[in-house]
Amino acid sequence: MLTICQGFDSARFRSVLGHFPSGVTAITSLDGERRPVGMAVSSFTSVSLDPPLVAFLPGKTSSTFPVIAERGSFCVNVLAAGQERICRALSVSGGDKFAEVAWRPGPLGDPVIDGVVAWVGCTIDAVHDAGDHHIVVGRVNDLGADTEASPLLFFRSHYGRVAAA
């Protein structure tokens, strides 16, 4: 339940925080039958260099996160500017989200999506309660990047890309 603070509601909170641009990631894993699962997440951050840790924040209503948590590993895929279609596919509930998403297994088997800007393979280190979300801390096992690709951005409820300087 959202706690109302100083006279503002959840719509205003979301609107104001939407003025902070974020990258768009796809958090991927495998289910118990080794089929790919995934979710689109813009709440991703680095946490620590020593040890190497990252974090993402899935909503508690997510049906995908419990599958990822059960497996214990995941891959963060930093989506490229041309991958909005993949983001939308992973944002829906149910169905085969990977029907038209090309990927290869990462070092832990979790999907690395073709054409991403970067990927980060992780094992779950900790999960913390945070209101209507979880804070999932992942220990980085391996990672890679395409230095030529430009990331997909989310700003004021719209997708965009980095402008050339």
Score class of each variant (00 low, 15 high):
2 L>G: 01
4 I>H: 08
4 I>F: 03
4 I>V: 15
5 C>D: 05
11 A>M: 01
11 A>P: 01
13 F>V: 06
14 R>L: 13
19 H>N: 15
20 F>Q: 10
25 T>V: 13
27 I>Q: 00
27 I>W: 06
27 I>P: 03
28 T>I: 08
29 S>A: 15
31 D>E: 10
32 G>V: 04
32 G>E: 14
33 E>Y: 01
33 E>G: 05
36 P>D: 07
37 V>T: 06
38 G>K: 03
38 G>A: 13
38 G>S: 08
39 M>W: 03
41 V>K: 00
43 S>G: 15
46 S>A: 15
46 S>K: 07
47 V>F: 04
49 L>P: 04
50 D>H: 14
51 P>Q: 10
52 P>G: 02
53 L>A: 09
60 K>S: 09
61 T>F: 06
62 S>Y: 11
62 S>I: 08
63 S>D: 13
65 F>T: 01
66 P>I: 06
66 P>A: 02
67 V>M: 06
69 A>R: 15
69 A>W: 00
70 E>S: 14
71 R>G: 04
72 G>F: 07
73 S>I: 01
73 S>G: 13
75 C>P: 02
77 N>R: 03
81 A>T: 14
82 G>R: 07
82 G>K: 11
82 G>Y: 09
83 Q>Y: 14
84 E>Q: 15
85 R>Y: 11
88 R>E: 11
90 L>F: 07
91 S>D: 05
92 V>M: 08
93 S>G: 10
93 S>C: 08
96 D>G: 06
97 K>Q: 13
97 K>T: 05
97 K>F: 08
98 F>C: 08
99 A>S: 14
101 V>Q: 00
101 V>W: 01
101 V>K: 05
102 A>K: 14
102 A>H: 14
103 W>P: 00
106 G>N: 12
107 P>K: 12
107 P>H: 04
108 L>I: 10
111 P>K: 09
112 V>L: 14
114 D>F: 02
114 D>K: 02
114 D>E: 12
116 V>W: 01
117 V>E: 02
117 V>G: 04
118 A>L: 11
123 T>W: 00
123 T>L: 10
126 A>H: 14
127 V>H: 06
129 D>V: 03
130 A>V: 01
132 D>G: 05
133 H>T: 05
133 H>W: 06
134 H>E: 02
134 H>T: 03
134 H>Q: 11
134 H>M: 00
135 I>F: 06
136 V>A: 07
136 V>Y: 04
140 V>H: 03
141 N>T: 11
142 D>Q: 12
142 D>I: 00
143 L>Y: 07
145 A>R: 14
146 D>F: 00
147 T>N: 03
147 T>P: 02
149 A>V: 04
150 S>D: 03
150 S>T: 13
150 S>E: 13
151 P>V: 12
151 P>Q: 09
151 P>Y: 02
151 P>N: 11
151 P>D: 05
151 P>S: 12
154 F>E: 02
155 F>H: 14
156 R>V: 02
156 R>S: 13
157 S>P: 00
158 H>Y: 03
160 G>K: 11
161 R>K: 15
162 V>C: 13
163 A>E: 11
165 A>I: 10
